[in-house]
């Protein structure tokens, strides 16, 4: 299997988010960046294909500026064969911009699977994978929790509200990953050493225009404060909730 794994570079889940004073960007001070956790699941699944069959190739791709390179190196340490960064420089980007870059890169390269995370924990868009699928005219299996490949086709399970859907798909296909499809892996020393000599290619972005721009970023509106109810008088809570029409 020849896989492309698209990864986004996102703040660690424990980050206390702050925005810059002008509300235009994330305040990156003291923030550790990681591979988006869902993308890492796709990466591990792609590596497993290679391990199981002893052949194939895994390319990781990130659309971004030079800041994302350590994250690509980490993907190489986990086991990807090569990395590609599509250089955005200082351009403003959105889901469609990123999708156009990925589609342009992947178009003629003969990938069997293009893997994504189900969403970026930074943007929460769930946009890029479906857009890439449409631009490449490929089937899209979203929120996949299981993937097995056979000759020429793939069997998948896709998460649904309160259950899942079994799917048979032709290959090539675009898959966005949800927990269940693989387990997270911690890179070992050997992987980290090997990553240093693997190729990280930088390719220029194609001309594309954003379709959505950010006006302002702000923290969620905080609550005015908590009304405490005495534990011995717990029934009082029910009275309040009934009065407020909440139950």
């Amino acid at each position: 299997m020849k896989s492309l794994v698209c990864i986004s570079h996102v703040p660690d889940t424990t980050t206390k988010i702050q925005y810059t004073a002008d509300g235009k960007a994330l305040d990156k001070n003291g923030v550790t960046f990681i591979i988006n956790p869902y993308d890492e699941l796709g990466l591990v699944r792609a590596i497993e294909f290679k391990e199981q069959s002893g052949q194939g190739n895994v390319t990781v791709l990130c659309v971004g500026n030079a800041e994302v390179e350590p994250t690509l190196r980490k993907a190489l340490a986990i086991g990807a064969d090569e990395a590609v960064r599509i250089d955005t420089g200082t351009a403003e980007i959105d889901g469609l911009y990123v999708a156009q870059q990925i589609a342009a890169y992947a178009k003629d390269k003969g990938f069997d699977f293009v893997f994504f995370g189900k969403e970026s924990i930074e943007s929460n868009g769930s946009e890029v994978p479906g857009m890439v699928a449409e631009l490449l005219d490929l089937p899209f299996i979203s929120q996949a929790i299981k993937l097995v490949a056979e000759a020429g086709s793939a069997k998948l399970q896709r998460e649904l509200d309160g259950g899942y859907e079994s799917i048979v798909s032709s290959i090539p296909a675009v898959v966005s990953c949800q927990k269940g499809i693989a387990e997270w892996r911690i890179p070992n020393m050997r992987g980290i050493m090997m990553a240093k000599s693997k190729q990280l290619a930088v390719v220029p972005a194609i001309a594309a225009e954003v379709a959505v721009t950010t006006e302002k970023l702000q923290l969620p509106i905080v609550k005015s404060g908590c009304t405490y109810i005495d534990a011995d008088d717990a029934g009082k809570l029910v009275e309040i909730l009934v009065d407020k029409g909440l139950i």
């Binding site: 379709a211 721009t213 006006e215 970023l217 969620p220």
Partner: peptide
Amino acid sequence: VMMRGTNSGKGLETVRTRR
């Protein structure tokens, strides 16, 4: 122009469509 959640519930983003 509208708002949406971002940073997994830790932030709010005001966006403008350009198409």
